[in-house]
Design a protein around this nucleic acid. Structure first.
Lengths: 200, 200
DNA sequence: TACATTTCACCCACTTTGGGGGAAGCGTAA
DNA sequence: TTACGCTTCCCCCAAAGTGGGTGAAATGTA
């Protein structure tokens, strides 16, 4: 466990220690000490806070996965901020809980991740699923979206024209209209804006 | 509810009907009939099977979201296939359950999605979270990965060179090495392969 | 009828791309 | 020490791609 708040850390440790089949092999207040002992502690599951002194939790997750890939990490934090959630998951977190949960949820979550699951708080799960879904009120037409998706795959105008069975000039017209609608002037800008607004 | 198996459909309908606060406004064996009655039924939550005669479940989800965006959909299926799961979520599913669950899970899931959650079976949640994570044994170096990520953002060699504070020629060398390692000969192929193998 | 969408055409100038070659400095591991 | 991989930079070439401009016809829909 890595958690800088003494009260919470000891509380969790006490809870887990008295649970059958659970053993707390380490409880640290910062990532540096935790990583130093990672090879010795050999944890199955790590509970990781994100707001930590010096090295942040996301970097702690990354380093853990590099040093000991089989380690499972569950983020336990107060942050429900989009960016942080996805950074933590990309870094290798296998679960994400917010601190407003009943303590029993922690026990369940650890069992769940050991059984091949991905324990998440309600809101986090929704954010994760929503990240797959497109914006339903796009300024782009169906055809333009189709073109932009292929642009985002790195395809050239010629390739796209062949795939859609139209002339290269048609694709160029679509691109011009896309740029005008998105108020951009290049592929990179268009892709960035489209991804940000979930148009593709 | 859209479910082509009579036994399952009637079983679920019976279960839900006798649960307090729940009302079954429609139980269909195919998407066509379901969509025809969608405006009339005005469901809060739809349980959607994926293997259906004629129109598939994924298209059913898409059409539902276009006709009535506020509708919440939970996929209930036997398929745990990667492709289908992500297609369903991209199409607009807000939850995904596999049929090997206890019936009580269905009730919980409907309550969960109404409270802003995203109910998922254990394995599905893991697949979804895993989709954010990179391949830890990439053939590419850190620098090459950095370059390829920017290529996938549609940036030109010149732009990438400026961002990384190196010469355009350096980027060209990296690209050549990336192409050689991935055994590809163009941007589009490199992006496709890198995304497929989760190198970026 | 008016409008949006989709399709195609031609002009220009500039950049990008993929492929070939070579090389120097750096650190690490055999 | 040697060898290797990584990162950096340089040169050549030809083909293709890109962004911007203007115009227009066919379709369907409100």
């Amino acid at each position: 466990m890595v958690e800088d708040d003494y009260i919470i850390r000891e509380g969790f440790a006490a809870l887990l220690s008295q649970t059958p089949d659970f053993e707390v092999v380490g409880a640290y207040s910062n990532c540096e000490d935790y990583l130093k002992n990672l090879a010795n502690d050999r944890p199955d599951v790590v509970l990781m806070d994100l707001e930590l002194p010096r090295m942040g939790g996301v970097e702690g997750i990354e380093r853990t996965k590099k040093l000991r890939p089989q380690t499972q990490l569950i983020v336990v934090t107060v942050y429900e901020n989009d960016g942080l959630v996805f950074k933590a998951l990309c870094a290798g977190a296998g679960g994400y809980l917010t601190k407003n949960m009943p303590p029993s949820r922690l026990i369940d979550a650890i069992r769940e991740i050991r059984q091949g699951g991905a324990p998440m708080s309600t809101n986090i799960a929704r954010m994760v699923v929503a990240s797959f879904q497109k914006n339903y009120q796009s300024p782009l037409t169906a055809r333009e979206t189709e073109v932009l998706e292929r642009i985002a795959q790195g395809k050239s105008y010629t390739t796209i024209a062949d795939e859609l069975f139209v002339d290269k000039e048609t694709i160029r017209t679509h691109i011009k209209n896309i740029y005008w609608k998105l108020e951009v002037h290049s592929k990179a800008e268009a892709i960035e804006k489209a991804r940000k607004e979930k148009l593709i």
